[in-house]
Amino acid sequence: MPIARLFLLLAIAAEVAGTSTMSLLGNNNALWGYGAMYLLIALSYYFLSLAAKKIAIGVAYATWEGLGIALITLVSVLLFDADLNLQQFAGLGLAIIGIVCVTLGESHQHDRQTA
């Protein structure tokens, strides 16, 4: 299970990196940006597929998508000067709380099945 979680973290990191390159596509390096974006997104799906072999697909996808959104938003705020209001921050906080609940629930379910 730890290797599956590592694959999931790699999938999230690749998604965040790939999606963040979209903000760079307006520069002169548009061809490089598209290539990097497509490569990183494909790598993200590859690692997600490896994680889904040991983690329930619903849990893996929810974690991948939810943490990806939260981290992409963080990158947007820190690197690209995006403005978020209080409601948007609260929504991201609720999403993270939901991901934690889903992940913890999956761990307890796995423990029950092995006992």
Rank of each mutant, 00 (worst) to 15 (best):
V75C: 07
N28T: 14
V77D: 00
G105V: 07
I72V: 11
D111P: 04
A17Y: 05
T19N: 10
A56K: 13
H108P: 02
M1V: 08
A56D: 10
A14H: 05
I55H: 03
S107R: 14
F89V: 01
L40M: 15
I12C: 12
T73W: 03
L25K: 00
V100W: 08
D81K: 13
N27W: 12
D111Q: 11
L39Y: 00
Y46W: 14
I55C: 04
T63K: 01
I97C: 08
G26A: 10
V77M: 10
L9K: 03
L92R: 04
V75T: 13
T114R: 13
A13P: 07
P2I: 12
V75Q: 05
L24I: 04
S107H: 11
A30R: 11
T21R: 04
G105H: 08
L94K: 01
I96H: 06
K53Y: 02
F89H: 09
Q88P: 05
A13R: 01
G26Y: 13
A95L: 15
I97H: 05
C101K: 01
G26C: 14
I41L: 15
Q113F: 06
A51L: 08
L43E: 00
M22R: 12
T73Q: 02
L31D: 06
V102W: 05
Y46D: 00
I12P: 09
A90I: 14
A115N: 13
A4N: 11
R112N: 02
N85A: 06
L43Q: 00
I97N: 04
H108D: 02
A52W: 06
A95N: 05
A4I: 08
H108G: 00
M1F: 09
T114Q: 07
F47M: 07
G35K: 00
A90G: 02
F47R: 03
G105E: 08
R5E: 09
S49H: 14
V102Y: 07
Q113N: 12
F7L: 05
T103V: 07
W32Q: 08
L10I: 06
Q113E: 09
I57L: 14
Q88G: 07
A115R: 07
P2Q: 10
V102E: 02
L43H: 00
G18L: 14
W32C: 00
C101I: 15
A70S: 07
E15P: 09
T73H: 03
I41D: 01
V59K: 05
G18P: 11
S49M: 15
L71S: 09
A56W: 06
V102L: 15
I97E: 09
A52D: 03
M22Q: 13
G26K: 14
G33H: 01
